[in-house]
Design a protein around this nucleic acid. Sequence first.
DNA 1: CTCCAGCCTGCACGGATGTTCACGCACGTT
DNA 2: AACGTGCGTGAACATCCGTGCAGGCTGGAG
Lengths: 328, 328
Amino acid sequence: MREHPCRLEGPHHTVADQNDALMTSVARMYYLDGLGQSEVANICGVSRSTVSRLLTTARERGIVRISVDEFDPRDRDLEARLVERFGLRRAIVVREMGGTPASTRRAVGYFAAPVLAEWIGERRLVGLAGGRTLGELVHHIESRTRGTGSAFVQLMGTIGSSPGRIDASELSRTLARRFQGTFLTLNAPAFAQSQRARDLFLSHDEIRSIWSAFDALDLALVGVGSLDESAFLERGVLTDETCAELRAGGAVGEICGRFFDERGRECPSGLRDRVVSIGLDALRACGDVAAVVSGPSRTNALRAAIRGGIVTSVVIDQVGAHGLLGAG
Amino acid sequence: MREHPCRLEGPHHTVADQNDALMTSVARMYYLDGLGQSEVANICGVSRSTVSRLLTTARERGIVRISVDEFDPRDRDLEARLVERFGLRRAIVVREMGGTPASTRRAVGYFAAPVLAEWIGERRLVGLAGGRTLGELVHHIESRTRGTGSAFVQLMGTIGSSPGRIDASELSRTLARRFQGTFLTLNAPAFAQSQRARDLFLSHDEIRSIWSAFDALDLALVGVGSLDESAFLERGVLTDETCAELRAGGAVGEICGRFFDERGRECPSGLRDRVVSIGLDALRACGDVAAVVSGPSRTNALRAAIRGGIVTSVVIDQVGAHGLLGAG
DNA sequence: CTCCAGCCTGCACGGATGTTCACGCACGTT
DNA sequence: AACGTGCGTGAACATCCGTGCAGGCTGGAG
């Protein structure tokens, strides 16, 4: 323990030389015999740090192999049923593991991310809305080493003066960085103060160019809001008053700040004339709109969006998928 | 993160129910995807503690499998050569991994321990001397769940007034506990003050009974000391004066406090008449004496002990084995 | 022979992990 | 129906592990 002075060999090519033998025996002691790294270090006469590093390289070189039973986080059966029932292009259903709404969002994001990355693939122009589940999804998409030259455009303006982490702008920016692609910003508030102000925004050249981009979308990723549990309510954009007005007009859901009824038709309201975002018809025209949703409360809204032809693909959790299929 | 209040299911059979699916996906995220346990916990909606426990049971149940390249810590070739050259019953040569003397001792102890446990097996009566390497060996022997009824007797008295961790008494006691066997103590100092005092000890009934046990030994485990580097010197038992006297008498090594020359004959000295330990002839009569040695400095002593018929098996490190074979 | 560059090592720190404790719910019992 | 028992959970603690940093040896070039 304190006999370091009397090492038998020079300290600087002791370990490197008999690398494999040492690495293997260290790995066996640690992984198979269950010794701690300190104990292994004592037995081998090296520092604990070195043991840690040896273990790392042993894993890298395949001296240590770790395997885990297969597990498919997606429910292929439900996916097929969704596709068939609603005529969807694609569906991802993430298995439920019985946690909180927040953990469900994270699970959907985590397991759907690699598939989404494939979907995005080589698309030239991808549009993004905001939302918590969509945020988790983007958050879990791996950075690419080689860019594909894709462009990412935000489909709606920013809510409030300080953009939150799940606003369309942040998500598009992040995704563009991960893919080493271009970020097209929609530099406007999600809701203007008045219709006049909204029209003023829309007349700006910068913003007009974004609007023309909306017509060229290859893929759109959107969240779906409900009136009951809306991020707009939380952020104070949607007043109880407007909410009641929308309900009266038959609104059941919202996409990109635009509320729609059971058949996917946009509902008139004070907000409708002030919103700065892609129109529902533009989304329909896109032809490839994926809704990223989690939680049981969005069922009606999502079903309406699908029936109304706005949404053509879904990314959803198991409970949500059951909800969609259950009544309707 | 702070949405705990709104869990969808009762907290008490959420996880246990879908055990396998959850365990598998947790294990995959942790081991294959390289997530931290906290991240996994967030995604799955359970606490980090639970993730840790799930991982443990996943390993236990074989959902996670870890394999490491084969590695034989023993040098079978050297073992065979030792057996042939010296006519040994058995030999264990532990591969060197180039550490300190202390780490070599630990390595010998660690890797030889399971084999030693086999050697001990069902023997009725096993004798133990003291020593650092032997201490490491004993230290690394696993506790048995079922006792074999073996008895363990210390082959020499205790050095000093407070028994160190590597004295014969401690080692025998520990080993007896590990094997759930009996411990026969030799309640005397290793070196009496005088020959008269020694004879007095030997005449005690308790000690005489130990002596008769010496004649019934099935196996003896001993260390081998040298004059240059002796634990006795460190502990002040062996004075420089006596040491010189021993050298003059041809002593090259020591076992159980008894010094012997190149042919294994015990050398006379002031210590010889005061030592309370098994005699070399009794060891020879035992017929199964294993020397547990590490380090390069014991070569001559060990060779003499083997040649002199005291030692019939060896447990040694690679360098020591080379030393034995090298010159002689 | 001397200098320099590169690499490997051990130390120290911060974060990650394993474990113990006390609580709360569910089930079996009275 | 109420209580007692048992299990699984989460929070706090102690430990363990991974990583940035500085020092020293080695090997090659001048």
